[in-house]
Design a protein around this nucleic acid. Structure first.
Length: 134
DNA sequence: GCCAACGTTGGC
DNA sequence: GCCAACGTTGGC
């Protein structure tokens, strides 16, 4: 079981939209590091769903329901998508500011590598976010 | 709207 | 293969 964090701008695709739809295809990734992370994901992995730009907070948890397959929105190149479903909405969102100020979370890639949209998260970090959001 | 960070592109 | 220029992301 692995843990991840994925970013989405909520006015493009929010966690609530994912809940409403029941499931979603995570398309549009055009970064090699993020793509390689998508390829590593397994069914059942848990994902922190982060709202970038608007909100700047982790709002819920999603789970992988289908492993990587070719991105139908890519005109060329080796790009992939995964399918995700909502798993658990956080009672209270965990803001970027909270993450930055929590001693247990200061090594998270979301702080160190601000532009990466799909990144691995350690189990301790995942558990800590869930704790802060409950 | 600005700008820092950083990934990508292209000339050499 | 190096590196300068450029483009994009995302926080502020």
């Amino acid at each position: 079981m692995n843990y991840w964090l994925m970013k989405s701008e909520p006015d493009v695709y929010s966690y609530d939209t994912l809940v409403k739809d029941g499931k979603g295809m995570w398309d549009g990734v055009r970064n090699y590091t993020a793509r390689n992370n998508l390829k590593t994901m397994k069914v059942g992995d848990l994902v922190l769903f982060y709202h970038s730009n608007i909100g700047k907070e982790v709002v819920g948890i999603a789970t992988i329901i289908k492993e990587h397959y070719p991105d139908p929105t890519a005109e060329s190149g080796d790009w992939v998508v995964v399918d995700v479903a909502p798993f658990q909405k956080l009672n209270k969102p965990v803001s970027l500011q909270t993450i930055k100020s929590d001693p247990m979370l200061t090594n998270m890639l979301i702080i160190k590598q601000g532009r990466l949209s799909v990144m691995p998260v350690k189990k301790e970090e995942f558990d800590r976010i869930v704790e802060l959001g409950s």
